[in-house]
């Protein structure tokens, strides 16, 4: 079985103080969210760079119905269980990057503070043939003030629209990068994530200087 006899190097701290700085054992986790509509390649993106094959967890998400078939104020908010694929990349022994692929259903705006709290940023994966699928994610990250990057997934090396058209359709700020990537290739996903990290670094610098 997976019993571990606690090797000496991993001195497990006994103080269960929240937020106690520990130099010893567990890696510091950081996370990036990979968001987008159904079938745009979120799991492919996660799997392309993760060192484990993506795992799935189920969690609650709060939904606010918007738009055409809004059933009225009495049922404006519901929770639903979503399945989320995730993976990880060990940066070094003290730092681990998690990637959470989360769906954004169209016609729903979702709110999920658990997911965003402490996140470095988000990669919004877009399929140009169904571009409106990503609107809820863009809305949410804008409101949450989370750095995000729009990544147009080019399944066949083809882009239905050019990146300026995508930017226009999404009506995002000029400082939000819109890029093209291929979710199947590790190097391509890595480069897209590096752009997310650049945005995160900008935010961290701004927070420090203010």
């Amino acid at each position: 079985m997976d019993f571990d006899p606690y090797p000496d190097r991993r001195v497990v701290g006994t103080a269960r103080v929240p937020g106690a700085p520990q130099k010893t054992t567990p890696p510091v986790p950081v996370k990036i969210i990979v968001a987008g509509g159904f079938g745009v390649g979120k799991t492919t993106t996660v799997g392309a760079i993760s060192e484990i094959s993506p795992l799935t967890t189920e969690a609650e998400m709060t939904l606010e119905a918007v738009g055409v078939d809004d059933p009225g104020p009495a049922t404006a908010k519901t929770t639903t269980t979503i399945a989320m694929d995730f993976g990880c990349v060990t940066i070094d022994q003290t730092l681990k990057l998690y990637l959470f692929g989360t769906p954004g259903q169209s016609r729903f705006s979702f709110m999920w503070d658990d997911l965003v709290r402490g996140a470095l940023g988000a990669l919004v994966v877009v399929d140009t043939s169904r571009i409106d699928d990503c609107y809820p994610a863009v809305d949410y990250f804008e409101r949450a003030g989370l750095p995000f990057v729009v990544g147009v997934n080019t399944f066949n090396g083809q882009l239905g629209y050019n990146l300026d058209e995508v930017r226009w359709a999404l009506a995002i700020r000029d400082d939000v990068p819109v890029l093209q990537f291929d979710a199947r290739y590790r190097a391509s996903v890595r480069d897209a994530l590096l752009v997310v990290l650049d945005q995160a670094l900008d935010k961290a610098m701004r927070m420090r200087s203010s």
């Binding site: 940066i91 990057l97 990290l197």
Partner: peptide, 8 residues
Amino acid sequence: IMRVIRGL
């Protein structure tokens, strides 16, 4: 964040 960037 810089460490994550270097690692990636």
